[in-house]
């Protein structure tokens, strides 16, 4: 799952105009850029940052959902949630591998996550409080992620684009699964319906914030658009998501927590109320309710596992030495 408009991209680059022009020609011709191709430093840096943030989001995203694996209300739901969280881990692995083709190691990226230098999708810094949150995350957060990621299947960087094709298939399954959880709750007992509405109330605004600042306030989009890393603007994607999601909420009898949400006949889409950008920036800057806990948990897993990783390396070394000695 993921994602949010890239946080803090820096597309500045120092190559000659001839080089940049030739590169842009390849981009404009919709050629895929592969790891060994010459590329502007800014392009490489932007992609490392974006793919890294994406990978970290998958990994950190395992925590809020993992919070409900042990309390899932039925064995069927428990198995489905386990499989989903496992998928997210798989996406993380896939994406770290894609980023590694650009000359950065998984260990370096992990260290940057733990030190707070690398960002991840700030939606995961909200807590999962009830079982309905698992439905809401699948439906809304994965739903928003798909809007962002489908265009990424056509991203100019080959390994990222190809990774996204598989990731999108799985995410779309997660989105349907999440919606199905919400549908079951919304049609269930009054307590279950209340749980579903409460989850929608809490996850709606953070979900539409996932697309990042309004286009007028988004500084880094232009270069990413020119390089075809990004294909649609934040507002375009947000609009698509809202237009797709509002009827889904209506269908299961849940109410969107936005009194200003109205259908705009002229533009053929919904108008929404003002987004609380103060909250967005607060959470992006690391002050979300679960931000400290998330990083603490990731760090703890990493530190607690250090002796295991060391042992695996030591054992591999011993085996190698024994094999050489036997030859």
């Amino acid at each position: 799952m993921y994602s949010q408009g890239l946080i803090g991209a820096d597309g500045s680059t120092g190559e000659t105009p001839e080089f940049l022009e030739a590169f842009q020609k390849r981009i404009d011709a919709e050629e895929k850029i592969e790891p060994n191709d010459a590329m502007p430093e800014g392009y490489r840096r932007t992609l490392i940052r974006q793919i890294g943030q994406h990978a970290h989001s998958e990994i950190v995203g395992m925590l809020p959902e993992g919070n409900w694996i042990t309390r899932a209300p039925s064995l069927r739901r428990k198995a489905a949630l386990l499989a989903k969280v496992q998928d997210e881990g798989g996406h993380g692995l896939y994406l770290y591998a894609a980023a590694e083709t650009l000359g950065v190691s998984r260990e370096e990226m992990t260290e940057e996550l733990h030190s707070g230098k690398a960002k991840y999708s700030s939606i995961f810094n909200y807590p999962t409080l009830t079982w309905a949150d698992i439905g809401a995350i699948g439906w809304l957060v994965d739903g928003a992620a798909i809007m962002n990621q489908i265009p990424l299947c056509r991203c100019s960087f080959g390994p990222y684009a190809r990774a996204m094709i598989r990731v999108c298939k799985e995410e779309s399954f997660h989105q349907r699964q999440g919606y199905e959880i919400m549908m079951e709750l919304a049609g269930g007992t009054p307590e279950q319906k209340e749980m579903a509405q409460d989850a929608l109330n809490r996850w709606w605004w953070p979900s539409i914030m996932m697309f990042g600042p309004h286009d007028a306030d988004s500084q880094h989009s232009d270069q990413s658009m020119a390089w075809k890393i990004k294909r649609f603007s934040n507002d375009e994607l947000r609009q698509k998501f809202i237009d797709a999601t509002v009827p889904q909420a209506e269908f299961i009898g849940l109410k969107m927590p936005d009194p200003d949400l109205t259908w705009n006949e002229e533009k053929g889409g919904y108008d929404h109320g003002p987004i609380d950008w103060d909250e967005f920036w607060r959470v992006v800057k690391g002050h979300g309710p679960m931000a400290r806990d998330r990083i603490r948990d990731r760090r703890k897993a990493w530190e607690d596992g250090a002796w295991v990783r060391e042992a695996a390396l030591a054992h591999a070394e011993k085996r190698r030495a024994r094999k050489i000695a036997a030859e």
């Binding site: 990994i59 993992g66 386990l82 496992q86 881990g89 897993a301 596992g305 250090a306």
Partner: peptide, 16 residues
């Protein structure tokens, strides 16, 4: 119970 807390990502996939 290990999910998301394993010593390495590969184990976060193997244990589930």
């Amino acid at each position: 119970e290990w999910c998301g807390h394993a010593p390495m990502l590969e184990e976060d996939l193997a244990m589930p």
